[in-house]
Design a protein around this nucleic acid. Structure first.
Lengths: 142, 142
DNA sequence: ATGGACCCTCTAGCAACTGCAGGGTCAAGG
DNA sequence: CCTTGACCCTGCAGTTGCTAGAGGGTCCAT
């Protein structure tokens, strides 16, 4: 009668939804838990640990298959730790790439936002024009 | 025999794949084009303009429903231009929010990456520990 | 007339969930 | 004892923005 969380309790404890937990079970991220007589799932502390890990990693943007790989490594205590570090560094590079991409994007949107003299009509909207790039050049040049 | 691009030609001209063009047609982003006797789609310059616009907007990260809204506005030349500007500004704020989120993320991953003294074994991997937030504190303190 | 490149429709799949329908279970209150 | 309401179960459809495949038809050059 000590441990044994229901799916709702586990959900609350980890900030997940029950549906998501069932989903993780379905795709093999979480192992199948025991069931009560009434077919309810019951979870123990190991499930709590594992799900907390998964959620934290997902918050940090790791895709599920990378999370899966990390879990597999964590389950093999003799493997070198560097493999996990590689996954983290990969994710770090990924995030840095996204940041630079988005910064370029922001600059362009910023430029775009200045094209509009507010109060004009669509007919001479510079934004729409600016977003239709090459055809203005290509069509008038046969 | 003058204009009339096939779907492949339009695809090449806009850096899109034929499948994507058909998809855009299916969801109403592009209007249904005329067909040849053999049931091939034929596109004119208006399609080219429209698709170029869509692709450019997508490149800038606008989701398809926003693109749809911009197209609807562009089709009404007497509407005020400010509505499009609002969509652009909304997207700009969205991108800026993503940038700050990712920067926080990067800092955390950076911290995480320094936890690894390379050469260790999984059994005492600080990264895994750091990713299991509460239990590291709760269970490692008997 | 035959080969290959192109095109057609329809369907299923990706990530990572979310939400719903149509049931079953359980503990507490009347 | 029975009912109510909160929870749980399975299974499946939907989300976003495409992409890929099956299984066929068309077009054009040789």
């Amino acid at each position: 009668m000590k441990s044994g969380l229901g799916i709702g309790a586990l959900a609350k404890a980890t900030g997940t939804k029950p549906e998501t937990i069932r989903f993780y079970e379905q795709i093999g991220i979480l192992p199948e838990p025991a069931r009560t007589a009434g077919n309810y799932r019951t979870y123990g502390t190991e499930h709590l640990r594992r799900l907390s890990f998964v959620r934290r990693a997902r918050d940090l943007g790791f895709p599920l298959d990378v999370v899966r790989a990390m879990l597999a490594l964590a389950d093999q205590p003799d493997r070198p730790c560097g493999e996990v570090d590689d996954l983290v560094l990969g994710q770090l590079r990924e995030v840095e790439r996204k940041i630079t991409d988005l910064q370029r994007l922001r600059d362009e949107l910023d430029r775009l936002a200045h094209q509009c003299r507010r109060g004009g009509r669509m007919a001479d909207c510079r934004i729409i024009e600016a977003l239709s790039p090459q055809n203005a050049d290509m069509e008038r040049r046969p």
